[in-house]
Design a binder for these strands. Structure first.
Length: 158
DNA sequence: GCCAACGTTGGC
DNA sequence: GCCAACGTTGGC
C-alpha cells in the first residue's frame, strides 16, 4: 500500500459539522453532494483508503480546521445524484454513467486547538494551499509538509 | 447580510 | 468556442 495522502474537506457546520461526524462512532459517513468538477476528479481518481483529511468549517465567523478524518472507502458513484428527492439530484448522472463521486470517511480526532484561516494565512509554508486563493474548492490536496506544519500549529506535534 | 470571486450555463 | 449572464460559495 502506498503512503497515505492528505486532503482538506470543507463543510458548513450548520449542515454537517465535525461533531456530527464524531457522533457516529465506528460508523462511516458518505462525503456526498460535491458538485464541482475539479473536486469530483480528486474524489474519483485520487482519494484512497487510508488517506488523511483535515475537516474544515467554512462559512462561519472564524473558519478553521477543526479535526481529522480518515478515508475508509475510495471514490465511487455518488448515488444521491440519482435520487429525485435529494437536493443533490442531477439527472445527468446515471448508474451506467455516473457524473458525481464520493468517498466514505470516519472520525479520527478533534484538534487540540482549532487552526483558524487567519492563522493559516500567516504561515509562509502554507502559501501554496489552494485554500489561500482557491477558497471555493471544497475538496483540495494538502502536501505532506503542509500537513505536518498544521499538525504542529494545532498542538499535536512538539 | 453583503458582495467579490469564480464556476457553470447557454445563446450566438 | 466565446463570453455574458447567472448562481453559488464563503470571507468578511
Amino acid at each position: 500500500m502506498s503512503e497515505p495522502r492528505y486532503w482538506l474537506f470543507k463543510s458548513e457546520p450548520s449542515s454537517f459539522s465535525l461533531a456530527d461526524l464524531k457522533e457516529r462512532p465506528g460508523a462511516t459517513e458518505h462525503w456526498d453532494g460535491v458538485r464541482n468538477f475539479q473536486a469530483r476528479n480528486f474524489l474519483r481518481d485520487e482519494i484512497k483508503v487510508g488517506d488523511q483529511v483535515f475537516f474544515y468549517h467554512s462559512n462561519i465567523a472564524e473558519p478553521a480546521i477543526v479535526g481529522i478524518a480518515e478515508v475508509v472507502r475510495g471514490g465511487y458513484p455518488d448515488f444521491s445524484a440519482w435520487d429525485p428527492q435529494s437536493k443533490y439530484f442531477d439527472p445527468r448522472s446515471t448508474p451506467e454513467k455516473p457524473v458525481w463521486f464520493m468517498v466514505d470517511v470516519r472520525f479520527v480526532r478533534e484538534l487540540p486547538r482549532a487552526v483558524t484561516l487567519n492563522e493559516l494565512k500567516e504561515i509562509p509554508e502554507l502559501a501554496q494551499l489552494p485554500l489561500m486563493n482557491r477558497s471555493r474548492l471544497s475538496v483540495q490536496p494538502v502536501t505532506a509538509d503542509a500537513w505536518q506544519v498544521i499538525l504542529r500549529v494545532a498542538g499535536i506535534k512538539a
